[in-house]
Simulated scan of single mutants.
Amino acid sequence: MDVARTPTGRKLQLAALLRYLRERRRLTQHEAGHAVWPKASAGSVQNKLARLESADAGIRQEDLYELLAVYDAVEGEYWELASLLNTGLSQRGRWQGYRSIYSESYRRLIDLEEDAQSIRYVANERIPELLHSESYVRAEFPRAVEGPSSDEEFTVQATLARQQNVFFRDEPPAVATVLSESALRRVQGDEAVMRQQIEFLLELSEHPHVTVQVVPFSAGAGRAGISHKGILERFALLRLALPGVTGGLPGHLDYVFTRTGEEICWQDDVRHYEDQWARASEAALSPRGTRDFLRRVGRDFA
């Protein structure tokens, strides 16, 4: 079973399973919820099921059993899977130490990266944090006379751990990134930092599960989502596998995170961003052409 590693991933998988089981029985959220919580108000019942099916709330094991009974799924693989997904959901203590640098809005993204079957980034102006070299990360911080700050060290540790959990874990996801040339030309630190960052992108692109493409300034002018200055939006598309069970449960879930200022915003409708991804990757250089382009950019920082 492709059970998620993180509490966030498990809650999303459980939410999808319970939504599927309810729809299979052709029940509304109110009908299903009222059968489990008959004394609750109609609004409260609706809210409970809506939050449960959007992974915004959990459910007690005894209530889960009653809900599965309503769905005629208290035996066999559905019961086994639902029970498994409803364990290990506590976030207590998981965001301490260097992981404390992540804001609440970022934590769902970090967890989903660790669980993802595939990750696709589109970026303008800035290289995605997941692809930062250590020197590029350190260049974000003003140099102190007494040495690196704790915030700098925590950010470096968090970045390295994030890369380990995505690029170098067992059975890593397929990671594809489309960068606007502007992301490569925006200097962070100095020329030595930029050379090291370009080299890091080249090293990542050599891994069979990693694809890096660049949209040069000369490509895509006039196309929706692409201008003469490159990509107009930046976002991450993540695909989460669903555990295999008999029946019509879909094989995966798709999510998108968009950047608004410094916040990561959760979006449910991915179709717009799927279209933007297709346009950006189509306008970009091929992976091989991108590697040649990256080498030329690296020489510009020599």
Rank of each mutant, 00 (worst) to 15 (best):
L238T: 08
G58A: 04
K39L: 12
Y20E: 05
T258Y: 04
V3R: 06
R24Y: 02
T8Q: 10
L253M: 15
L68G: 06
Y106N: 04
D269G: 07
R138V: 15
Q29N: 13
L109D: 00
D268M: 11
V187E: 02
S118N: 03
P216R: 00
A50W: 11
R26A: 12
A116E: 07
S218R: 15
R99W: 15
A35P: 03
V270A: 05
R92Y: 14
Y102V: 02
L18F: 07
L285R: 08
H252F: 12
V214E: 00
R185K: 13
R186D: 01
G222V: 08
A4K: 00
T155P: 00
A161L: 12
Q276C: 07
L14I: 05
Q96C: 08
L294A: 01
L160P: 00
E31S: 14
Q164H: 10
R99F: 12
A236S: 07
R223E: 06
G244S: 13
A192E: 04
T155C: 13
R299Q: 10
D151I: 07
V74G: 09
Q61E: 08
Q29T: 07
Y65A: 02
F167V: 01
A183P: 00
I119E: 05
N124H: 02
W95R: 06
H228K: 15
A15S: 11
H132T: 03
S281A: 14
R126F: 03
R296H: 12
N124C: 06
A116W: 01
S105N: 13
E274T: 06
P172I: 04
R143P: 08
Y273I: 03
G289T: 04
R234K: 09
L18V: 06
L67G: 09
L21D: 03
R107M: 05
G247S: 02
S83A: 09
S41G: 15
G76C: 05
E153P: 03
G189W: 01
E140F: 14
V175N: 05
Q267W: 04
L81S: 06
V187H: 04
A123Y: 02
E140G: 13
S227M: 06
P208N: 14
A278R: 05
L85Y: 06
F235L: 01
A176Q: 09
E129R: 10
A139E: 03
E77I: 08
E191V: 09
E181G: 09
Y78I: 04
